[in-house]
Amino acid sequence: MDIALSRLLWEDGWGLSILRGSAVTLAVGVLGMSFGLLLGLLLAAVKWARVPVVSQIVDVYTVIVRSVPGLLVVYLIFFGSVEFIAKVGTFFGYTDAFQSAYSFIVGVLSVGAIAAAYAAEVFRGALNAIHPGQIEAARAVGMQTRKLYTRIIGPQMFRYALPGISNVWQSTIKDTSLVSVTGLAELIRVAYIGAGTTRQPLIFFVIAAVVFFVITLFSQVAFGLVERNLNRGVRVV
């Protein structure tokens, strides 16, 4: 069993493929999360500011994305635009390179769109958790609006939002598995291909599960450290 496994991973080169797939998964996760955080912050600010019409549109967006399956979001974005993009690709004359880059971009966008909806709720909650007295006090000492945001609202908001953001990251990295349906060679897709070629699905999918488990475990520890660092000025009762 051990010999068979090491042969599969090293001599047949599947180990390298899995490593490359893991890198793609991490890249989609990190880029999607970054996109989601930026968009989510913007959406939360709009919600918080209660801009007439725009806030309602943001509400509809977050409700829809959070109550529709992620798989459906990926399908809609991928199949909804693939024809158009294929035309553009053929027009410029590089179809293959275009398509693999394209499924990567779709992956980042759809994972990010889902993360943004959840992050918006987290940031909104964090903004609401800031005591109004803090903002009034800042205004009372004559702080300018920009300083108010960078010194009072920003740091406190991130501290309140961190546990929620940690949850969003955990589900985002797991949501990257959905992108495998577009044919992007991320971890699950590589495992799927490996399982089909070698007829050893159990080993490949268990390896994929282990890689995901290590990623989530590691990020849990990392977020715990950041949280402790951000809370260092807070008295523990």
Binding site: I188, A209, F213
Partner: peptide, 11 residues
């Protein structure tokens, strides 16, 4: 909770 449901279904 640490692995995607998709992997669990595939396994």
């Amino acid at each position: 909770r640490g692995t995607p449901l998709l992997v669990q279904i595939f396994i």
